[in-house]
Structures are given as structure tokens and as C-alpha cells.
């Protein structure tokens, strides 16, 4: 078993990006932030302490923010390097750097279990209409599974999937 803090150190850009995404969404929703830790040697490796958002949507947005930002940024960074490495076996040092950075960022897309709980509670609050609940439940469920599944490397599998397999799927669809 590799301790979590070692994984966090090896993939620190993802932790920083995750917390920055939380902060960005707090700023967008005008939610007061009391403390931010972008990275530290401990558990959790980073956190954002903010006031309770006014609406369930804001709470979901703040919690899901890193999932969107980290997934998109990780995929864009790793995509051009994935093909030369996976398909053509001609990866340069730069390609391997891009893969490390992309996977590191994408694997920290999943929210923490605390965030996942918060999203789940918000989704079932009174101010979320039924269609939004029905639409959001499967998404939140996936996020929840991802958050809990980090103990079985689901976050790493997701990171590799987003960073390396997504470009292959795009190419298969385009060809």
C-alpha cells in the first residue's frame, strides 16, 4: 500500500488545481472564503474553508467545480502526448512530462468524501426541483463512487482514462 500523502506529493499539481477550482467557484458565487491551503504534507493535502452557500446549486457548483476543471485541463494537457506514447511508442521526455501533469491533474478531479456528502445532501434539499434531482442524481452518484473509490485507485484509473484513453476515443470517432 502506498500512503496517500506520497500519492499527493507525486501528483501535487492536481491538488493545487483542485483547491484553486474550489476557490474559483466560491469567487464566482460570491461565497466568503475563510482559509485556503493549496498544498501541504498531510491529510487532506489541501482544503478550502468557506461559508455555507445560499443555495443548493451553489453548493453543488463549488463541490463539482474541481471535477470539471481538473478533468478538462488534465485531458487537454495529456491528449497530444498520449498518442505518441500509447500508439506510436515514440514518446519524448516532454511527452512523458505532459502525461504526468495531465494524469496528476485529472486524478484529483474527484471531490473528497466530505465534498461528495455535501453534494449529495444539497441535491436532496427542498430548493432543488425534481427534474434537476433526477438528472443530477446519477452524476452525483458517479462522483460519490469516485470519491469513495480512491481507496481502490479509482481516482488514478479515472486520471489515466481521461488523460490517455479519451484522445484514442476521439480519434476513433473522427477516422
Amino acid at each position: 500500500m502506498i500512503p496517500g500523502f506520497v500519492i499527493s506529493i507525486l501528483t501535487f499539481p492536481g491538488v493545487i488545481m483542485h483547491e484553486m477550482a474550489h476557490q474559483l467557484f466560491c469567487r464566482l458565487f460570491r461565497i466568503a472564503i475563510f482559509d485556503v491551503c493549496y498544498f501541504r504534507f498531510g491529510n487532506p493535502a489541501g482544503y478550502v474553508v468557506h461559508e455555507i452557500p445560499r443555495s443548493a446549486y451553489q453548493n453543488i457548483g463549488i463541490s463539482i467545480g474541481p471535477f470539471i476543471v481538473n478533468s478538462v485541463v488534465g485531458a487537454i494537457i495529456a491528449a497530444p502526448a498520449a498518442l505518441p506514447i500509447i500508439q506510436f511508442q515514440t514518446g519524448t521526455l516532454l511527452d512523458w512530462f505532459l502525461i504526468w501533469l495531465g494524469v496528476s491533474i485529472a486524478m484529483h478531479a474527484f471531490p473528497s468524501t466530505g465534498d461528495a456528502n455535501s453534494i449529495w445532501k444539497s441535491l436532496w434539499s427542498k430548493d432543488v426541483p425534481l427534474p434537476a434531482k433526477l438528472l443530477g442524481a446519477p452524476i452525483v452518484m458517479i462522483i460519490f463512487v469516485g470519491a469513495v473509490g480512491s481507496v481502490v485507485w479509482l481516482d488514478l484509473i479515472y486520471g489515466i482514462g481521461v488523460a490517455m484513453l479519451l484522445p484514442k476515443l476521439i480519434i476513433s470517432a473522427m477516422a
Binding site: 487537454i76 497530444p80 498518442l83 505532459l98 484514442k168 473522427m174 477516422a175
Partner: peptide
């Protein structure tokens, strides 16, 4: 940097698949 290399990578990938 990655975005600028992406189109090249996709073109090569599509050509290989074809």
C-alpha cells in the same frame, strides 16, 4: 503548448486509424 500540438497529434492519429 499542448493545445498547439493537439491538432498535429489528432491528424496523425486519424491518418493511422484510416
Amino acid at each position: 503548448l499542448s493545445s498547439s500540438r493537439f491538432s498535429e497529434s489528432v491528424r496523425a492519429g486519424v491518418a493511422y486509424e484510416r
